[in-house]
Design a protein around this nucleic acid. Structure first.
Length: 667
DNA sequence: GCACCTCGAGTTCA
DNA sequence: CTCGAGGTGC
């Protein structure tokens, strides 16, 4: 290559890389894959290696590769980095607005910004060049992490020159964070190398910035959003500050909003309470700032926080709480499950009092003891999960938990079968099991008797009105009226709901019987194969084994149930009260053989509706993603299934595309 | 015999 | 959602 060509190629690479980096931080919209970016980057590095004279201090390649340092130098802040006062409810935000407006009169503009859960930093630029990067530290003095922050792709080493040129000397402040996706990759990598994981993205970001070797920082994939600038220059409001940062090529968060009253602030908070889960970074709240900088100055600061801003904190997703007790609940199959009774704690918007501990091995593995202070979070934002005990807070004398030997409900011995993890109560007459079987019988996937919920079943059992499933169909109005909260109308409604279920689909009825190893899916498979309850009753183990998806364990369980005295008795009594199965036919359609998996919330239709429409076309609604999954429909706030689908290369549709495909298929 | 997919069972709160 | 375990295919 001729020297001028080389020079031109070098300049082009630098321009392209800076352009893409700019898309990343100003617009938060990557145009290209990381791998493509990395390839461009390698080209540039190779070129500079061959032609060192082309390399300048602000070349993108100079972001990485600085030598490790021994320790961090102290970095005093020119003006203190304040922290914000917190508001834990919307009322406290209202209070803040009142306080502000009492002091300076009506305010017509507030800026709402997402509060990024990362690490506060300050960047100093001189004549447009990144001079120093520092952590917040104690607010007065932080640590000099210039070499580390230089590796953050979205932090420009050189500011863009706008219309007015680049300010001679400025300091900007913001938050450095690790995207959730990069966090997941990092932990996977640490696992592989047998190193301890980071507990959350914030810790990982802090740990990555505080790497003495910036080359390690460079590999972590940190990003940043800036929100303050000093001096503000022409900007007259906080919104103007953010725009000015954009113009300089500094990364800002795009999801900000200027509002004029407290209702609109509450609206922003409400909107992002859920939407934030769709972002690839953690947010722990919303920062509300009085927009005009003149008013900010007038309001000033008290102690260590400004009076013109407040941080609204979302309810925490992870909290500490105390295990008051570990009780054992008995399911319909007799399975004894340990459940932690907790000091009520607010997590992700709800008060949690209990959390399953799955089984005794799990309790032992996590070593959870009564009296322990534990870390509690919500798996998939719904199911509370005890993560781990905080050993440093363990009370003296707390003993390891032991599974009881006897059923808490009927005092029968609990048996743990060879090779199984669960212990079971083997008494078929156990009251706890009987109650759970009734709940299962009436539940949504079984007979779906509307209005016959757990509380009412408990009352019916406790009052001696119902012992077995068939007794439900013998209930009369006088009995119902003796129950709590039942009046004329509610009693009639429940009786009608029960009566409607004397005719149900065979699949539902089989599921309702509560045969071990037979759930919703297998029940419908059996219904489709045998067609009638009589045919299924007559089927032997061999005949069952021939059914696709039925193996020896299930075949034995089904045949055994229909041959057993309690099984035959239940069938006899159900027939007596007029419960009959309807013939069911397997539906086939354009989607036969396709498994569709739904994740996240749908807008236009409910989950059961969506599943019904998939079935109507012959498809199968699935619950977990594998390579064989036909497609994944990702609604709002999709869970881990989306990630898995992407990893396996399974097609992902949004709700609109899903509806379009449904219509196209004739459903 | 193993890997991978599916399914069952248990659980939380409003 | 998670865990364990049954079923199937290589």
């Amino acid at each position: 290559m001729a020297p001028e060509e080389t020079r031109a190629r070098h300049a082009e690479l630098v321009r392209t890389i800076e352009h893409h980096a700019h898309r990343y931080y100003v617009l938060d919209s990557p145009e290209i894959e990381d791998s493509e970016y990395d390839a461009l980057f390698r080209d540039l590095a190779n070129l500079e290696e061959l032609h060192p004279e082309l390399q300048t201090p602000d070349s993108p390649t100079q972001r990485v590769g600085a030598a490790p340092v021994e320790a961090f130098a102290k970095a005093p802040h020119r003006t203190p980095m304040l922290s914000l006062a917190n508001a834990f409810g919307v009322e406290e935000v209202e209070e803040f607005v009142r306080r502000v407006e009492r002091a300076v009169g009506a305010v017509d503009a507030y800026v709402c910004e997402l509060k990024i859960d990362g690490l506060a930093v300050s960047l100093s630029y001189k004549d447009g060049q990144l001079l120093r990067g520092a952590t917040r530290g104690n607010g007065l003095e932080g640590e000099d992490v210039t070499a580390q922050l230089r590796t953050v792709r979205t932090i420009p080493t050189r500011l863009l020159a706008g219309v007015g040129g680049v300010p001679a000397e400025i300091e900007v402040r913001g938050e450095v964070f690790l995207p959730k996706s990069a966090f997941a990759r990092l932990n996977e990598d640490l696992d592989e190398r047998g190193k301890p994981r980071y507990a959350n993205p914030r810790n990982a970001a802090a740990g990555s910035v505080r790497q003495l070797d910036p080359r390690i920082t460079a590999r972590r994939g940190l990003r940043a959003f800036m929100y303050a600038i000093d001096p503000p220059g022409e900007a007259g409001t906080q919104a103007g500050v953010l725009d000015a940062l954009d113009r300089l090529g500094l990364p800002t968060n795009p999801h900000r909003r200027v509002v004029s009253n407290v209702e609109a602030i509450a609206g922003y908070v409400e909107e992002w309470r859920d939407r934030r889960h769709d972002l690839d970074y953690d947010t722990d709240g919303v920062v509300i700032k009085v927009a005009p900088l003149a008013l900010q100055e007038e309001l000033g600061a008290v102690a260590r926080s400004p009076r013109w801003a407040i941080a609204y904190k979302f309810p925490p997703e992870e909290v500490e709480t105390v295990v008051l007790d570990i009780i054992v609940s008995v399911g319909r199959t007799g399975a004894a499950t340990p459940v932690a009774v907790l000091e009520p704690a607010l997590v992700a918007g709800t008060t949690v009092r209990r959390a399953t501990l799955h089984n005794e091995d799990e309790v032992a593995r996590k070593d959870i003891r009564i009296g322990d202070t534990v870390l509690l979070h919500k798996a998939g934002d719904v199911i509370p999960e005890v993560e781990r005990p905080l050993l440093e807070k363990r009370p003296e004398g707390a003993a390891p938990w032991r599974m009881p030997d006897r059923c808490p409900s009927c005092d029968t011995e609990l048996v743990r079968e060879e090779g199984e993890v669960v212990r079971r109560c083997v008494n078929p007459l156990c009251p706890a099991q009987r109650r759970e079987r009734l709940r299962h019988f009436a539940s949504r996937a079984s007979l779906n008797i509307e209005g016959l919920g757990e509380a009412i079943i408990d009352q019916l059992v406790d009052g001696g009105h119902v012992a077995g499933a068939a007794d439900i169909f013998r209930l009369d109005k006088a009995t119902l009226l003796t129950l709590d909260g039942f009046a004329d109308k509610s009693a009639d409604n429940l009786l009608r709901a029960i009566d409607e279920r004397r005719h149900v689909s065979l699949g539902r009825l089989i599921n309702a019987l509560g045969i071990r190893h037979v759930g919703e899916h297998t029940a419908f498979t059996l219904a489709a194969h045998f067609g009638t309850l009589d045919a299924l009753t007559a089927a032997g183990e061999e005949e069952l084994l021939a059914v696709e998806g039925i193996g020896p364990v299930v075949a034995r369980s089904v045949a055994g149930w229909f041959a057993s005295e309690p099984g035959r008795e239940l069938l006899r009594r159900l027939a007596e009260v007029g419960v009959e199965a309807e013939q069911t036919e397997a539906s086939t359609g354009p989607w036969t053989g396709q498994t569709w998996v739904l994740t996240g919330g749908l807008d236009g239709l409910t989950r059961p509706e969506a599943e019904a429409r998939i079935r109507a076309l012959g498809g199968t609604p699935g619950s977990s993603v594998s390579r064989k999954t036909h497609a994944v429909v990702a609604g709002a706030a999709p869970g881990s299934k989306l990630e898995k689908a992407q990893r396996l290369g399974v097609r992902v549709l949004d709700e609109a595309q899903f509806l379009a495909e449904l219509e196209a298929a004739g459903g």
